[in-house]
Nucleic acid binder design. Structure first.
Lengths: 154, 154
DNA sequence: TATAACAATTGTACGCCTACAACGACCCGG
DNA sequence: CCGGGTCGTTGTAGGCGTACAATTGTTATA
């Protein structure tokens, strides 16, 4: 019973994975920081970040946030009341509404983005060579984990 | 505006951090897997995992989960009704109740732990040398991030 | 012994999110 | 023009957590 003990995984891959999860989930909960700094729920901040790239329809925004259409209305209502977002009727199709981020909304989105992208101090203190290797390994892991849909030719 | 663009962070540390967050939060949402597999909320699964190490009082369990005393009652009520946990009055102090995990509860906790500890396939496919370097770097990051309380001597 | 302190419970109210039903306004094809 | 489909909205119900207030049973203290 030395290989499947309670909390002492000896497998290197498992060790790496647990360390990663610990860093992201426990040691540096950026999500909590964001909601705290902006005074809004995480999904609202995510909506703002989504809108930085350009205006979207309610439907598109809901899809981007993976939330229900009705809840999309609730979220946009809230953001609009805060003056972070504007709603306008689409020019050609008057059914759809186009959500556009405002200047203040953009500022809030920037704050959120900066908080989430700010690396832990320990990461900044890493020797350049070691950091470079880490980046190489991690980006490869991301690529190989992201939707391995039957290798897109190439 | 080439250094502070919208989503193209050039800083290596930032790249590493974003990759890590992407892996843990988006690409491999173990938390969702656990709640899905066990049919219970994450905090309930966390309660079970906490109890594997030994019985705890309601108060201790609440502290371990960082939840309110009243909500601790709710959680334990639920786990007890599922037969995953037992409540007993403390021998010496009859105010406190000792929560003990059952055999089935232990099995559920094991399932949860296994899901969360299971590394992404891409991580398992890494060359041993690269994996070893990754583990070394990550564990150091964890150590340096975890409560840097004025260097405990030594 | 009176009284304070503590553990657990119950109850209430709220915030956040999911899921679903129903509706009005609108577009589009027949 | 009419009927079917789409878009956004409103409403409802529920799960999950957080945060308090109040209560009961029990222990410790003055």
């Amino acid at each position: 019973m030395s290989s499947s003990r309670d909390g002492a995984g000896a497998d290197p891959a498992e060790l790496a994975w647990r360390a990663m999860r610990s860093l992201v989930l426990e040691l540096h909960d950026k999500r909590a920081e964001v909601t705290d700094a902006l005074g809004m729920s995480y999904i609202r901040a995510k909506a703002l970040r989504s809108l930085v790239g350009g205006s979207m329809t309610m439907r598109e925004l809901g899809a981007a946030l993976a939330i229900d259409a009705s809840y999309t209305t609730v979220v946009v209502d809230d953001l609009e009341q805060r003056g972070l977002v504007r709603r306008a009727v689409h020019d050609v199709d008057r059914r759809v509404k186009v959500v556009t981020i405002t200047a203040t909304g953009r500022a809030a989105a920037r704050v959120a983005q900066r908080i989430m992208d700010e690396p832990p101090p320990a990461l900044l203190a890493l020797p350049p060579a070691e950091l470079a290797r880490l980046v190489a390994t991690l980006t490869e892991l991301v690529e190989r984990s992201a939707a391995p849909k039957s290798e897109p030719k190439l």
